[in-house]
Amino acid sequence: MKSAIKVTGLHKSFNLPNEKAAGLKQAIFNYLKGIKGYKKQKVLKGISFEIQPGEFVGIIGRNGSGKSTLLKLLAGIYVPDSGKVEIDGTLVPFIELGVGFNPELTGRENIYLNGALLGFSNKEMDAMYDEIVKFAELEDFMGQKLKNYSSGMQVRLAFSIAIRAKGDILILDEVLAVGDAEFQQKCNDYFASLHGNQTVVLVTHSMENVRKFCDRAILIEQGKIVKEGDPDEVADAYLKLWD
């Protein structure tokens, strides 16, 4: 079977500007003085893995280990320095919930805008709309502007789009568990039901979620994969990082 995601030898570095190089004056100055004006920071140093269709994979690691960069490379937001990302099927990325949400737009308008940003057509959104609203339990508020929503309602709406969006591969960056206890329970049930049916890549710091939902986990440390496999073992290895 063809892998849903195949990553080979991924390298990524960023040019971090020194001090304030964000200006034309400074750029010309640096150029004249022969200063590069930035420092190269290697974030990912040769990452390779495969994810099979229907797998639920957790990516864990400390802050700054390169998880989010990896996710952004998978989503096609960044381009790698070298290496390859091969995706089979449509990928729906949630690097952040509610991208493009605008307080001056109504809930309904925001759903469609968010959907368009994720690459869904109006027709596809029409098909998902009712389910999204129902899951968010915001049926009575869709005509209201987002600024009149409580913050809990906003997150619920964004989260519902994320998990109701129909794509072959779902990518989630630390967005589990929002809303009140009841809504969280609903989300947990939903994630449990995804098992085996949906390819999910989840970045999280919650080892509880890793153990509960994931088929496999990948631990990243300083831009490299240090452990991969059984979620319980990888989660234990993660917790030992501080020993």
Partner: peptide, 27 residues
Amino acid sequence: MVKIPRVWDRKNMILLKELTKTDFKLR
């Protein structure tokens, strides 16, 4: 490889429409 959409891809047109509508409404 991540699919590179064609310039006049329908999805791109939908996004264009949504973003323009938003801009226009908010202005």
